[in-house]
Design a protein around this nucleic acid. Structure first.
Lengths: 233, 233
DNA sequence: GTCGAACTGTGTTGAATAACACACAAAAGT
DNA sequence: ACTTTTGTGTGTTATTCAACACAGTTCGAC
């Protein structure tokens, strides 16, 4: 965790961030009240129980957010991508973090001081509405996931997870390879199954020609079929 | 679904509602832009796919919100109580409803016109912040639920559901009976299990002296033990 | 009050999947 | 280069729980 030569202002000026609704003056204000941090792959960004210090914006890299369940078994509840918030739920609920965030690859994250965020939000209703919309979408996603993970069978759960990863991170230049490289264990923790079963089911999908596996690289060969598997449960 | 002699202004003036942060003028404005509706027990308030018309406030009664999953099997994602919002996720996400709401008992609900809500929120940051906080809490609850429903065993899931119902609706005057009367099927749909297993497990709990059952009336006799069952998974 | 439908309760069977055990490969540290 | 650790892959066993079947009971409608 150390600073690098990343241009810190990028995440506030980034056209894909929610900050596009801000006035130049407000952007300037935020830029004066934030710090940037670098995280190596595998590093913990925040932990269950930590107090949120401010609004964290993931500027570069990918992050998994998970909760520890029965017997320390982890369930991934969210996958973050740039440019997006991380740890904002706890901040706005005025609680400590109820989940842990770990860098999947090297990351750059900016933290805007809590007071500054709240001050800008008081004056700019558009920002508040953006935050509300983020929450509303996220909650919808969480409800969907609850139903999927509890009701679908292993194949359906894995298929849906692969589609979710594709939708979230997109493809590499070949338009087939999912643009994120997870361990089998992470795939399992995302899909509510054991690592063994994730490995087994991925192999089966590969045998059936739905996907191709090369180490952690997963290529989707037959998306319609994958969607069908996901639908059927 | 018909109007009754319920004093419609109650839900906006109610000290437990989020509207306490409004100025008298703003309250007056909202009161001029909303309608009230009465729903009989078992009636559908809104359905998956419906377009949200405004911000619904549950003024009286209890409501279950559920999603249809694999093979039409329903999963209850939320239990609403007065005074609280219902159907607000879809409204703020600018989507159609992704879940269905059904009255568990006779209900009164007020709908504040969408435009009016948004207008007041633009001018009153406190209201926006209240909405944000509602969302943040709800999302935390949903994440918790995902982990519970996927990882805990039947006994743990049922125990947690009973505690959840107690925390949400409280006790009757005897300080033991949970103040909501659900069918075994609803208990099952809340706890991700079949009706048969809900019945069976409730019986077991009763035999063990943890709870007492009298029809749909459930009395918690040994809360610490119930909490232990929930903890263990 | 009577009928039918929905709800509740209990036993049996079978399928899904977690748990475990182990072998091998790859990566990381010394 | 060697060891240690971590990740991957595969077979076997054990357990949980859904599915099904059926009987009794309560509730609501007529």
């Amino acid at each position: 965790m150390q600073d690098r030569n990343y241009n810190a202002d990028d995440c506030i000026d980034n056209p894909k961030s929610v900050f596009t609704v801000l006035t130049p003056k407000e952007k300037e204000f935020l830029k004066q009240n934030y710090t940037c941090a670098f995280y190596k792959k595998g590093e913990i960004i925040f932990k269950e129980g930590d107090k949120p210090l401010g609004l964290m914006i993931l500027a570069e890299g990918k992050v998994k957010i998970f909760k520890e369940g029965v017997g320390g078994r982890e369930q991934i509840v969210r996958m973050a991508k740039p440019v997006g918030f991380i740890g904002y739920r706890a901040l706005f609920a005025e609680e400590n973090h109820t989940a842990t965030a770990v860098a999947i690859e090297d990351c750059v994250s900016c933290i805007v001081d809590k007071e500054s965020v709240f001050r800008v939000m008081r004056n700019n209703a558009d920002l508040s509405m953006s935050v509300i919309q983020s929450f509303a979408s996220e909650l919808g996603f969480s409800h969907d996931r609850t139903v999927t993970l509890t009701q679908k069978h292993i194949r359906g759960r894995l298929a849906e997870s692969l589609i979710f990863l594709k939708d979230t991170y997109g493809y590499e230049d070949d338009h087939k390879t999912i643009k994120i490289y997870l361990s089998r264990e992470d795939v399992a923790n995302l899909s509510n199954m054991t690592t063994s079963n994730a490995i087994r089911t991925l192999s089966t999908f590969a045998q059936e020609g739905v996907i191709a596996i090369d180490g952690r690289k997963i290529r989707i060969l037959d998306l319609p079929k994958l969607e069908r598997i996901s639908e059927l449960g």
